[in-house]
Design a protein around this nucleic acid. Structure first.
Length: 420
RNA sequence: GCGGGCGUCGCCAAGUGGUUAAGGCAGCGGCUUGUGGCGCCGCUAUACGGGGGUUCGAAUCCCCUCGCUCGCCCCA
């Protein structure tokens, strides 16, 4: 029989890795709790229309990366490629926005049909924050601060916060036509990719990794110059707030972001240690999205953080704590009655809050002791036929050879351990 | 979708045309029918991703295919 493998880009997390994930998740939860941000859980599967309308038909995510299929009722369904659209949909659907601003976080798997590489999988995991109904510039800084402090608390270093302002929709429309005109005038000097993008997504040309194109671009009109006075003012407020919080950032006028819903503040937190996929956390303001999805006009900011990339950073830094659960007690037994007695002892120990591992092998005691030793447990409880006959257990200290073995009634074992 | 690299036992890893494909770790059994951490011995019945081809002979060369990986694109 041929073995079946997981689907490409779908990754298993084994017990040696999950402790780190749990630590990250627990830390994140604590940060959200302190920031009075409530958890929301939405379905992994949504109507395709939600993402098409929310993220933008022309984006790569929607255009070529979605897991989309028809269900048995011929409805077009899509495995969520990101979290924001679903959160906004749920907020609208349940009338949350009528109750005032919403501070929400979410976490879980996202799906994008892409070629896997370092820091990129087809099923990957994000945690994200969405602050709905907040228009002020300080909220942008607050959202960023929550992400920044979480990463710092986890012990990730070498991070860089990049920010930019995309201005209002009008700003971008105006800038786009300026830029397109300029790009067309310099068409012949651009690389092939960038020439393509003049028609599809001209702002992305700014992000080109082609060195020649980058050099050329120094003469291009900038988005910053195209921003209206109010947009400028707003961006200055965000920067001032960050400065006063002591969060270092660099301005990146080329930072554009690939989802259509962003406007005004856009930011990314990146690390140079991640290879080509350097962004650990990305987000920004999306004041138009709620309305776009059929809700009331609502200002909002949010971000999403990629857990795989975070794990990559924490593992590289050697921060990985091997938290394999070391048993308090390792129970050894041999023979039918003895094994049943041992099982009961294990259960009692667990009910009392001890970490108890049972050796189910029924192998020679020598073997079982070897495993008991390797488990790292402090104590071993031994139940053999003799002990089983009289309801007793031999308790042996595995680390201190001075301590003598003691034979005692099985009921007394836990009391003794509780004291020890 | 497009490039580059790589695929030898559960894991790591020698071996680049020639008798039975090293070794280490883990696992299992034994030395030691009921007492561990060391050591020694043995085992894991056809392990060279798969399929073709070249050759007297292939893990080693060629072709195809699958998978992994890094990068492009894009993003978390």
């Amino acid at each position: 029989m041929e073995a079946i493998q997981s689907l490409r880009g779908m990754v298993d997390l084994l017990p040696v890795q999950t402790p780190l994930w749990q630590r990250i998740e627990a830390t994140a939860r604590e940060h959200f709790r302190r920031a009075a941000i409530g958890e929301i859980r939405t379905p992994l599967l949504e109507a395709t229309e939600l993402f098409a309308r929310g993220i933008g038909e022309a984006t790569d995510v929607v255009g070529k990366e979605m897991y989309t299929f028809l269900d048995r009722g011929d409805r077009s369904c899509t495995l969520r490629p990101e979290g924001t659209a679903s959160v906004v949909r749920a907020a609208i659907e349940h009338g949350l926005l009528a109750q005032g601003p919403q501070r929400l976080w979410y976490g879980g798997p996202m799906f994008r049909y892409e070629r896997p590489q370092k820091g990129r999988q087809r099923q990957f995991h994000q945690i994200g924050v969405e602050l709905l109904g907040v228009a002020d510039a300080t909220s942008d800084a607050e959202a960023i601060a929550v992400a920044w402090d979480l990463l710092a608390d986890l012990g990730v270093d070498g991070l860089e916060l990049e920010i930019n302002s995309l201005g209002t929709n009008d700003d971008r429309v105006r800038y786009r036509s300026e830029l397109v005109a300029w790009l067309q005038a310099h068409h012949d000097q651009l690389d092939a990719d960038s020439q393509q993008r003049i028609a599809t997504n001209p702002l992305r040309v700014l992000d080109s990794k082609n060195p020649a194109t980058q050099a050329l671009l120094s003469g291009a009109p900038t988005l910053a110059d195209a921003l209206a006075g109010e947009s400028h003012e707003r961006f200055a407020q965000v920067r001032q707030a960050l400065e006063e919080l002591g969060i270092p950032f660099v301005l990146n006028p080329r930072l554009v972001r690939g989802l259509d819903y962003y406007g005004h503040t856009a930011f990314e937190i990146t690390s140079s240690q991640l290879g080509a996929q350097a962004t650990v956390c990305g987000g920004g303001r999306y004041d138009g999205l709620v309305e776009q999805l059929g809700g009331p006009p609502t200002a909002a900011v949010g971000w999403a953080l990629g857990l795989e990339r975070l794990v990559l950073l924490l593992s590289q830094a050697g921060t990985m704590a091997s938290e394999a659960a070391v048993p308090d007690l390792y129970v050894i037994s041999r023979g039918g009655a003895a094994e049943r007695l041992a099982l009961g002892l294990c259960r009692q120990g667990r009910q009392a809050g001890l970490v108890v591992e049972r050796d189910p092998s029924g192998a020679a005691f020598g073997k079982q002791f070897k495993r008991a030793d390797r488990s790292g447990a402090l104590w071993a409880a031994v139940v053999g036929e003799e002990e089983a006959a009289e309801g007793a257990v031999v308790l042996k200290h595995l680390r201190d050879p001075q301590q003598q073995d003691r034979r005692l009634p099985s009921g007394a074992v836990l009391e003794l351990l509780a004291k020890a």
